[in-house]
Amino acid sequence: MTDEQWQAVFANYSNASFVELLRGTSPHLLPALGAGAPEDPMVSAVPHGTTVLAVRYRDGVLMAGDRQATEGFQVAHRTIDKIYKADDLSGIGIAGAAGPSMEMARLFQTEVEHYEKVEGDGLSLEGKANRLAQMIRMNLPAAMQGLIVIPIFAGFDEKAGVGRIFKYDITGGRYEEAEYFAQGSGGKDARDSLKKRYRKDMNKEEALRATLEALLDAAEEDIGTGGPDLIRGIFPTVKTITRSGFGEVPDDEVRRACEALLVERKGRL
């Protein structure tokens, strides 16, 4: 075997990486290879996802997001889904420029699945979180122009037997949150709301309630975040990630919880 062949077999640790495969074979499909330019006023005309959050509860993690995408002061889309299944045991909530964010979520899904198929075993949760950090770092030139992608990553750690939540900054910095986190334009309001309502070891109903209240608070305070739309019947997306996998809280259940919440609020005013 030549040196090069040895290299290919042993030194190329990224054999199982889909991103590295793209870099080698079709670099034009990789997001954000553009050089950084000063912030462009056009950027606000690109649809942006607004509020996503993740909360730890007894069985794992609950992830939720509102359904609105905004373009400056306009509504770009009313029914966007911001929580994506990464694999059976993890999910990604996207906030920031919607186009690049969705592309990154799709690339990340493929990356995780590709690794699992090539290696025969899935990546650890830690490994997935780090891989996502590297992909966010790839987006830094675009982020400097204002096309920011800052997802929340959450999943169930099989080794530790608990749900875990990771947040990121635009440079790919990765920080683990022990209780909850919310990201996006209404993120701060949702976090403030969760700070008051979060308790350790909540059951699913309690976690769902705290989550929906946080999204409602964010929708009230932040113009970008969409509240429950009773006319069209649009309610937040809520997903759960537990030992038994990535699940969805049915629309019906979310709608009922939302309506109960609104009635209760009305009673207070």
């Binding site: 054999n15 495969l21 793209l22 074979t25 499909l29 493929t110 590709h114 198929k117």
Partner: peptide, 14 residues
């Protein structure tokens, strides 16, 4: 097999 996984994932992604 690995070549096949690559072929499929590339095609599915693009």
């Amino acid at each position: 097999r690995v070549a096949g996984v690559r072929h499929a994932d590339l095609k599915g992604y693009s």
